[in-house]
Design a protein around this nucleic acid. Structure first.
Lengths: 155, 155
DNA sequence: CCCAAATGAATCGTGCACAACTTAGTTGCG
DNA sequence: CGCAACTAAGTTGTGCACGATTCATTTGGG
């Protein structure tokens, strides 16, 4: 009814200002919903969602620099430094300046951090169930999200 | 090579702890990239990304309660209250207690807030270009994101 | 060798998100 | 009517995100 006021209101929603047409909102909204759904699972592990992502990286590749972690997660040191301090305070991660380059800090898992991996194994499957996508939909959306990420990050 | 340690390492990635297999990370990561890409566009309008979303709602439906806005954006009053104060301070939004229910606050656009709509028209199209999806991919990913959102929010 | 540029991490300030709580106002039931 | 349950906003505390800046260290060119 109010489409007359929109420049491109003829089905193609690319230039619309309507919230429901915006891919960005679908993305923002789904991301927050998913994070919220993770929360109770991660509470069991005493991790926040970004902390969980950091642990995923470390479980995959122990001994990594803050810089390398930032590259993997696309996060700045200004985000990671305080987060890593909290993980260190929780006894999951050890931080140490590199002997051969004092600018760099090497992250390693403590025994406790390594052990947490076993308790975390149930998390991805539980979440996959909550999302309720078929294997094919799951792959499709992951591919499209990575495409968006690549296109938008480029330049 | 380290797939032997994963419970379900045979192609199906549903239960993997590897970062690149996680839909949640693709989602989180794409969402942040897209928001970052919006930033310079929205700086022109002196809006943050969540503020822009609030303005989208108000441009679509002027006169809405904080509660209604929260329902539209799936955000709590604890997030919206300070954000709306900033929009009011910027002279874009007017807040007023309802006469017939003093608990409720009605939001309306100021002339300046209404005028901003014209300057915002270019934003969605510019972003659509930056994301670089075909019309079909755009629709597909929006549908799947809404499906995820629905499934994950349910219960 | 020296010093300017570059690099890696951390710090600071602003603005979300959200849980837990508070305050004020409304409603409905005995 | 009276008051307990409920509702709408707002406040507080914690933890991201990120730009801008700082600090220590390393590197490379003259």
């Amino acid at each position: 009814m109010n489409e007359g006021t929109d420049a491109t209101a003829h089905g193609g929603a690319r230039g619309s200002l309507q919230l429901r047409d915006q891919l960005c909102f679908a993305l923002y909204s789904a991301s927050r919903s998913v994070t919220a759904r993770y929360r109770p699972l991660l509470d069991e592990l005493n991790l926040t969602y970004p902390q969980y992502l950091v642990m995923l990286v470390l479980w995959e590749q122990d001994e990594i620099s803050v810089r390398g972690l930032g590259a993997a997660l696309q996060l700045e040191s200004s985000t990671l430094s305080p987060l890593l301090k909290r993980l260190e305070a929780a006894g999951l991660v050890h931080r140490e300046r590199r002997a051969d380059d004092e600018r760099s800090v090497t992250l390693t898992l403590t025994p406790s951090g390594l052990a947490l991996r076993d308790r975390a194994r149930a998390v991805p499957l539980a979440m996959s169930g909550a999302m309720g996508l078929t294997e094919e939909q799951d792959e499709t959306v992951k591919e499209l999200l990575r495409l968006i990420n690549d296109n938008v990050s480029r330049s």
